Amino acid sequence: MSSKMEPGPDAPSDNNNDDDEKYGGDFKVTPWEVEGEVDYNRLVEKFGTQPITQELLQKVKGMVGEIHPMLKLGYFFSHRDFDWVLDKKDKGENFYLYTGRGPSGMVHMGHVMPWIFTKYLQDKFDAKLLFQLTDDEKFLYGQDRTREEIKKYTYENILDIIAIGFNPKKTRIIVDTKHIQHLYPLATEIAKRITFSTAKAVFGFNNSTNIGMIGFPPVQAAPCFLPSVIEGKNTPVLIPAAIDQDPYWRMTRDVADRMGYYKPAQIHSKFLPGLGMLGKMSSSRPETAIFTTDAPEVVEKKVVSAFTGGQPTVALQRQLGGNALGCPVFWYLRYFFDTEKQSDERLLKCRSGNLLCGECKSDLAKGARPFVAEFQKRREKARDVIPMFMYDGRPLEE
């Protein structure tokens, strides 16, 4: 297969040593860890991606009639060749969507956000979707998860994926250990073209890394090219995902030309902050994350206990105002429950001291409780339709 209109070039692969991981010395972003307060402008520079511009937003609007709030408000902020994929679509060439999840625990609202946006892309562009669950990676990474635990989380995560509302005719879920026969031929083609030196530079592997992890990246790369195999022709792929996964796609794009495929395009999201002080929402810190399976009283308790950008006392809050942009409660409300106008007003009121943290927490609890309750109903219904979504090697319906 030959690619006729090639996506743009990439920055060179970066060495993931400690100096490079600490961008500016105060935060860290790798496929397995996100620490500190992330400077997204610095991250764009470091990873060599492109910021999403107003021109690009208007192109999306011209094609589908609207700009999704997650794009307009900057939650999706960076890309590689998103404009190229849109040009392909504009000329009548359909693209696939590909995203994934490492089933290391239960799903929280930080995981759900990119999936909601992926559904928007599927609906607006009538796109087929491959959703990969990397259960093999989560078993291999670290020493604290058994195969049975990963199997349990994989099943639970599938319920969450289906509950998003993806089109069952155009969506297939791939579980690596279950569907490896469909991935392995491509994975070996990819692996043959990547040296250990390159993998070490991109992922920071060292002499203590188990060989399973060293061999894993081509498996995550394989779905980038699987649509071309399914369709029998070179097929563009767009990956909506958090930017911590970008090293996988940089590696994949490096070998795409040599394999005769299009380079996979990406659109990157930020991290939904945890309810603690710094960093993204994480399953490993359950007290700072709102899970899709949390009971209403648990949601309420987590919101009430959340860190905020407010002052230590009401008097100081009235006098000095709060730091809304450093407040996870503000970002939850902005991305999930406030309209753009409401959020902008909330920002001004917080900064001026005319809004107290308790009011924002109350608003978040009022929004999050019914959101989670409704999501749980859809999760229960998903139990009956799992086989419909699982990949079986056959072409997806038009």
Rank of each mutant, 00 (worst) to 15 (best):
L56G: 08
L56T: 00
K59R: 14
V60I: 02
K61Y: 04
G62S: 03
G62T: 03
G65A: 12
G65C: 02
G65T: 04
G65W: 08
E66S: 14
P69T: 10
M70A: 06
L71D: 03
K72M: 04
G74D: 01
G74K: 00
F76H: 02
F76W: 06
F77L: 01
S78A: 07
S78N: 02
S78L: 06
R80S: 03
R80D: 04
W84P: 00
W84E: 11
V85I: 15
D87L: 05
D87Y: 07
K89Q: 15
K89M: 03
K91T: 13
K91N: 15
G92M: 01
E93A: 03
E93W: 07
F95T: 09
L97N: 09
T99R: 00
R101E: 09
R101Q: 12
P103K: 12
P103F: 14
P103T: 11
S104W: 12
S104C: 12
G105W: 12
M106W: 10
V107G: 08
H108L: 14
H108E: 12
M109T: 15
G110S: 10
G110V: 09
H111Q: 14
H111V: 01
H111E: 11
V112A: 08
V112Q: 04
M113V: 13
M113R: 05
P114E: 00
W115D: 01
W115N: 05
W115E: 02
T118N: 07
T118W: 04
K119N: 07
K119Q: 04
Y120V: 01
Y120W: 14
Y120K: 06
L121I: 05
Q122G: 00
D123G: 00
K124W: 02
F125T: 03
D126C: 05
A127C: 13
L129G: 02
L129H: 05
L130K: 03
Q132L: 12
L133A: 14
L133I: 13
T134Q: 03
T134Y: 06
T134C: 07
E137A: 13
F139H: 09
Y141Q: 02
Y141V: 04
G142C: 06
G142I: 08
G142F: 11
D144I: 07
D144G: 07
T146E: 02
R147M: 05
R147N: 08
R147S: 08
R147Y: 12
E148Q: 14
E148G: 09
E149H: 11
I150A: 08
I150M: 09
K151G: 09
K151V: 10
Y153K: 11
Y153I: 07
Y155H: 03
Y155V: 01
E156F: 11
E156Y: 11
N157S: 13
D160P: 02
D160N: 12
D160K: 06
I161Q: 05
I162Y: 02
I162C: 05
A163M: 09
I164F: 15
I164T: 13
I164Q: 10
F166Y: 15
F166I: 07
F166A: 08
N167W: 08
K169I: 01
K169G: 08
K169N: 14
K169E: 15
K170C: 00
K170S: 03
T171P: 06
T171Y: 07
T171D: 04
T171K: 10
T171W: 05
R172A: 14
I173M: 00
I174Y: 06
D176R: 07
D176Y: 11
T177H: 13
T177K: 14
T177G: 10
K178P: 07
H179A: 10
Q181V: 12
Q181L: 10
Q181F: 05
